[in-house]
Design a protein around this nucleic acid. Structure first.
Length: 277
DNA sequence: GCCCAGGGATGCG
DNA sequence: CGCATCCATGGG
């Protein structure tokens, strides 16, 4: 994809491969603010970017342009990915709908915490909890707050996370932080997808689906297919009646292989947006 | 009051 | 193993 970086701005002319609405609302990330159709703010770790439209281009403005160049995975060619997936099927409508989706490369600790909170929860409440955690424990960054360090997260008790609205996941979070040390998440990145998945599942609050989300949105492993309630509904609608999510996952990974993660995002976004109306 | 949300942990056979 | 049940909480 064509883009250029000058000073603190990344300028993207090709909206067919970069649409903030699609990127932020496809369920992979929770810490962003939609000011309006043409204006977003996104928070990642201790970094902030503002996105706005100018002369038919999208501008990503930040003090850390190189961080967000990686975060938005700008060097990847999504036209190629979409063409490959078109060949295989009924994905056409979903790809046309979410044409500007990109899979983000998010901070590992933040992704882990976010998706532990996401279990059997809804997106609005997940967002609210994460903003609360940032505000109470994170370093102040002007108008917003950084995601807290592991040390900060370890310094509070179950009551804090109940106060954050995480419900019964509060005790899972406290156990989780005690299982981690400062660099463990990054150190595991050399593992194969399968070994990394097994390790993630050993963590408190992490099962198969949450592990797949961390693998995809944090570790950039695209050979996984997170199956949640929406994907389950979609699968039953388009393929066959099946209520075992492990089987659904195995079938979809067998079908899409290393492209699974991309296929999943188009389908999740399409199914969920259609269901809103 | 009931059902659902980007499910996981636990116990039981 | 597979399966059932329970788990907080806010919104529709």
């Amino acid at each position: 994809m064509k883009y250029k970086i000058c000073d603190n701005k990344i300028i993207i002319a090709d909206e067919s491969q970069f649409c903030p609405q699609h990127i932020f609302e496809c369920g992979q990330v929770f810490s962003y603010i939609k000011h309006n159709e043409d204006h977003y703010t996104v928070l990642s770790k201790d970094k902030i970017a503002t996105l706005y439209k100018q002369d038919d281009c999208w501008v990503i403005e930040s003090h850390s342009p190189e961080y967000f160049e990686n975060y938005f995975d700008l060097t990847r060619d999504y036209t190629k990915i979409k063409n490959q997936l078109q060949d295989s099927s009924f994905l056409t409508n979903a790809i046309d709908y979410g044409y500007g989706i990109r899979i983000l490369k998010q901070d590992l600790l933040e992704t882990l915490v976010s998706f532990v909170i996401s279990a059997n929860n809804n997106i609005k409440r997940i967002q609210k909890s994460l903003f609360y955690i940032r505000e109470k424990l994170g370093e102040r960054l002007g108008e917003y707050y950084a995601f807290p360090t592991l040390e900060k997260l370890k310094s509070v008790s179950v009551d804090f996370f109940v106060g954050a609205g995480t419900g019964y996941r509060a005790s899972q979070l406290v156990k989780l932080f005690n299982q981690l040390d400062e660099n463990i998440l990054a150190e595991k990145a050399y593992l194969s997808t399968q070994d990394l998945r097994n390790w993630l599942i050993s963590l408190s609050g992490v099962g198969g689906k949450v592990a797949d989300c961390i693998l995809l949105f944090g570790y950039a492993r695209t050979d996984v297919f997170p199956v949640d309630t929406w994907i389950e509904q979609m699968y039953n609608e388009f393929f066959e009646k099946e209520n075992n999510r492990v089987k659904i996952r195995d079938n979809l990974v067998a079908k899409y292989g290393g492209m699974s993660g991309f296929a999943q995002q188009y389908l999740f976004y399409y199914k969920r947006e259609k269901n809103k109306k």
